[in-house]
Protein backbone atom coordinates (compact mmCIF):
# COMPACT_ATOMS: atom_id res chain seq x y z
CA UNK A 1 0.00 0.00 0.00
CA UNK A 2 2.79 2.37 0.90
CA UNK A 3 4.62 1.75 -2.33
CA UNK A 4 1.37 2.11 -4.19
CA UNK A 5 0.64 5.52 -2.86
CA UNK A 6 4.18 6.72 -3.25
CA UNK A 7 3.90 5.66 -6.86
CA UNK A 8 0.57 7.35 -7.33
CA UNK A 9 1.79 10.50 -5.67
CA UNK A 10 4.87 10.58 -7.88
CA UNK A 11 2.65 10.01 -10.87
CA UNK A 12 0.31 12.79 -9.94
CA UNK A 13 3.08 15.24 -9.20
CA UNK A 14 5.21 14.36 -12.18
CA UNK A 15 2.62 14.46 -14.94
CA UNK A 16 1.95 17.96 -16.21
CA UNK A 17 -1.71 18.16 -15.43
CA UNK A 18 -4.24 18.77 -18.13
CA UNK A 19 -6.90 20.55 -16.22
CA UNK A 20 -10.25 20.71 -17.90
CA UNK A 21 -9.70 17.30 -19.41
CA UNK A 22 -12.99 15.45 -19.09
CA UNK A 23 -12.60 12.28 -17.06
CA UNK A 24 -15.18 9.74 -15.98
CA UNK A 25 -16.46 10.28 -12.46
CA UNK A 26 -15.70 7.57 -9.96
CA UNK A 27 -18.85 7.29 -7.92
CA UNK A 28 -17.13 5.06 -5.38
CA UNK A 29 -15.57 8.23 -3.98
CA UNK A 30 -17.21 11.15 -5.73
CA UNK A 31 -20.54 12.82 -5.08
CA UNK A 32 -23.41 12.67 -7.54
CA UNK A 33 -24.00 15.96 -9.34
CA UNK A 34 -27.63 16.05 -8.18
CA UNK A 35 -27.52 17.09 -4.48
CA UNK A 36 -30.89 15.53 -3.65
CA UNK A 37 -29.85 12.18 -5.07
CA UNK A 38 -26.48 12.44 -3.35
CA UNK A 39 -28.24 13.04 -0.05
CA UNK A 40 -30.37 9.93 -0.56
CA UNK A 41 -27.33 7.90 -1.55
CA UNK A 42 -25.37 9.08 1.51
CA UNK A 43 -28.22 8.25 3.85
CA UNK A 44 -28.39 4.76 2.37
CA UNK A 45 -24.62 4.30 2.57
CA UNK A 46 -24.77 5.16 6.26
CA UNK A 47 -27.24 2.31 6.71
CA UNK A 48 -25.44 -0.41 4.75
CA UNK A 49 -22.94 -2.55 6.58
CA UNK A 50 -19.54 -3.20 5.07
CA UNK A 51 -19.14 -6.94 4.37
CA UNK A 52 -15.35 -6.79 4.76
CA UNK A 53 -14.75 -4.65 7.87
CA UNK A 54 -17.95 -5.69 9.51
CA UNK A 55 -18.48 -3.10 12.19
CA UNK A 56 -18.68 -0.13 9.86
CA UNK A 57 -21.19 1.28 7.44
CA UNK A 58 -19.87 1.43 3.88
CA UNK A 59 -19.95 5.22 4.03
CA UNK A 60 -17.03 5.13 6.45
CA UNK A 61 -14.98 2.21 5.22
CA UNK A 62 -11.76 2.20 3.23
CA UNK A 63 -12.22 -1.34 1.92
CA UNK A 64 -12.30 -1.73 -1.88
CA UNK A 65 -15.54 -3.68 -1.79
CA UNK A 66 -17.19 -0.92 0.28
CA UNK A 67 -16.16 1.57 -2.39
CA UNK A 68 -17.60 -0.70 -5.05
CA UNK A 69 -20.87 -0.86 -3.12
CA UNK A 70 -20.93 2.93 -2.87
CA UNK A 71 -20.42 3.14 -6.62
CA UNK A 72 -23.31 0.79 -7.33
CA UNK A 73 -25.56 2.62 -4.87
CA UNK A 74 -24.83 6.00 -6.46
CA UNK A 75 -25.33 4.59 -9.93
CA UNK A 76 -28.64 3.00 -9.07
CA UNK A 77 -29.89 6.13 -7.32
CA UNK A 78 -28.75 8.24 -10.27
CA UNK A 79 -30.64 5.87 -12.55
CA UNK A 80 -33.81 6.72 -10.67
CA UNK A 81 -34.15 3.81 -8.23
CA UNK A 82 -35.48 4.64 -4.78
CA UNK A 83 -33.24 4.04 -1.73
CA UNK A 84 -35.69 1.34 -0.61
CA UNK A 85 -35.28 -0.50 -3.92
CA UNK A 86 -31.50 -0.33 -3.73
CA UNK A 87 -31.57 -1.56 -0.14
CA UNK A 88 -33.83 -4.45 -1.18
CA UNK A 89 -31.41 -5.31 -3.97
CA UNK A 90 -28.49 -5.49 -1.53
CA UNK A 91 -30.55 -7.50 0.96
CA UNK A 92 -31.43 -9.95 -1.83
CA UNK A 93 -27.68 -10.52 -2.28
CA UNK A 94 -26.37 -10.53 1.29
CA UNK A 95 -29.42 -10.99 3.50
CA UNK A 96 -30.83 -8.73 6.26
CA UNK A 97 -27.40 -8.59 7.85
CA UNK A 98 -26.20 -6.03 5.30
CA UNK A 99 -28.74 -3.40 6.37
CA UNK A 100 -28.29 -1.49 9.63
CA UNK A 101 -32.01 -0.76 9.50
CA UNK A 102 -33.77 -3.93 10.68
CA UNK A 103 -36.89 -4.88 8.75
CA UNK A 104 -40.06 -5.00 10.81
CA UNK A 105 -41.04 -8.65 11.09
CA UNK A 106 -42.20 -11.00 13.84
CA UNK A 107 -38.59 -12.01 14.42
CA UNK A 108 -37.41 -8.42 14.89
CA UNK A 109 -40.52 -7.16 16.70
CA UNK A 110 -38.90 -7.37 20.19
CA UNK A 111 -36.70 -4.45 19.14
CA UNK A 112 -39.76 -2.24 19.40
CA UNK A 113 -41.98 -4.27 21.73
CA UNK A 114 -39.49 -4.53 24.60
CA UNK A 115 -39.01 -0.75 24.95
CA UNK A 116 -42.76 -0.26 24.52
CA UNK A 117 -43.49 -2.80 27.23
CA UNK A 118 -41.00 -1.03 29.50
CA UNK A 119 -42.74 2.26 28.89
CA UNK A 120 -46.19 0.84 29.61
CA UNK A 121 -44.98 -1.15 32.61
CA UNK A 122 -43.26 1.95 33.93
CA UNK A 123 -46.41 4.03 33.68
CA UNK A 124 -48.36 1.29 35.40
CA UNK A 125 -45.93 1.24 38.31
CA UNK A 126 -45.98 5.02 38.33
CA UNK A 127 -49.75 5.25 38.44
CA UNK A 128 -49.70 3.51 41.82
CA UNK A 129 -47.38 6.11 43.26
CA UNK A 130 -49.27 9.18 42.13
CA UNK A 131 -52.01 10.97 43.98
CA UNK A 132 -54.52 12.42 41.58
CA UNK A 133 -56.96 15.17 42.32
CA UNK A 134 -56.03 15.78 45.93
CA UNK A 135 -54.65 19.27 45.63
CA UNK A 136 -53.44 21.03 48.69
Amino acid sequence: MRRLFALLAALLLAIPLHTGQALAQDYAEESLPNPRQEEQALALMDAIRCVVCQGQPISGSNADLAGDMRRIIREKIAAGESPAQVRAWLVSKYGDWVSFQPQVSPATSPLWLVPLATLIGGFWLLSRRIRIGRKR
Binding site: V52, L65, D68, M69, K93
Partner: peptide, 13 residues
Protein backbone atom coordinates in the same frame (compact mmCIF):
# COMPACT_ATOMS: atom_id res chain seq x y z
CA UNK B 1 -12.59 -4.31 -11.98
CA UNK B 2 -15.30 -2.78 -9.84
CA UNK B 3 -16.57 -5.91 -8.06
CA UNK B 4 -19.84 -5.63 -9.97
CA UNK B 5 -20.11 -9.35 -10.61
CA UNK B 6 -18.97 -10.11 -7.08
CA UNK B 7 -21.76 -7.92 -5.69
CA UNK B 8 -24.33 -9.50 -8.03
CA UNK B 9 -23.37 -12.90 -6.70
CA UNK B 10 -23.55 -11.79 -3.07
CA UNK B 11 -19.91 -12.67 -2.60
CA UNK B 12 -18.06 -10.85 0.16
CA UNK B 13 -14.44 -11.71 -0.45
Amino acid sequence: DQSRIQLMLGSSG
